[in-house]
Design a protein around this nucleic acid. Structure first.
Lengths: 125, 125
DNA sequence: ACTTGACTTAGAGCCAACTCGAAGTGTTAT
DNA sequence: ATAACACTTCGAGTTGGCTCTAAGTCAAGT
């Protein structure tokens, strides 16, 4: 086994995705067709793993699979699509900012309730 | 129509949930059995609406319906369950903090990529 | 009176994103 | 040689959280 590339099982371990899901993502076009060793078995490069890890971050921001498909397709089309990808990233930036702001507001409320329920009853003057 | 209580339709408008979902939540025990006017039609009080809005915030933090059921059940049992509710809120606080931290990390990466793709190519010395 | 709204139960349908399994064949590592 | 791994297609199943329909009855507001 070369240290340069990973089998699908190793790629699964490296990314936390299942073997099934790796093939599923490739089928959806989220991952480009992975090069094959001996023309049948997939061999994942460092770059492949990096890309998958990036995808997982997009997913964790709540980006839909559809949007990830669009992004991946643009990526594959090369430098001409840089503007469009930047536009997508900027839209995502705004969404994530909004989401963080919303969660922060809810966190404040949670903390307020914790304080309220934990405090000894106030003595009124 | 009294100004003191709302019909299910008005409650739907006030909370953003559908009439269907209001009954669905009540059936799940997320909302206590709403008092009836004339013994059949639900009438939502201000407190009911407030509770539902709180539920929606819990939902927005990612709390599962199961956990919301548990919380609602504890709430219904009264003051003796305060400790347990505080424990749940503290656990939620940690989860939301972790989620915000994760999103913030991803936001940094998104911004980094935007900068990278937007910058004019650097002139090397 | 009459329109609009609300009630019930029970079950079907929907969406996203997996997740799994079968079946049968081919590959790799030791 | 042999065990473990990988390949394909492809359809079914799962989870969570709704969402809707049907059918028939009853209530409220003007």
């Amino acid at each position: 086994m070369s240290t340069e590339s990973l089998t699908i099982k190793q790629a699964a371990e490296a990314t936390g995705l299942s073997v099934h899901t790796l093939r599923y993502y490739e089928g959806l076009g989220l991952i480009h067709p992975i090069d094959r060793a001996g023309n049948t078995h997939r061999r994942y490069t460092r770059e492949d793993i990096g890309w998958i890890q990036f995808l997982l971050k997009l997913r964790a921001t709540g980006m839909s699979i559809q949007d990830m498909q669009t992004y991946a397709e643009l990526q594959r089309q090369g430098d001409e699509t840089l503007q469009q990808r930047v536009a997508m990233l900027k839209a995502l930036e705004r969404e994530v900012e909004a989401h963080i702001a919303e969660l922060s507001g809810h966190l404040d409320l949670i903390r307020y309730k914790i304080a309220l329920y934990s405090e000894p009853v106030l003595e009124l003057a």
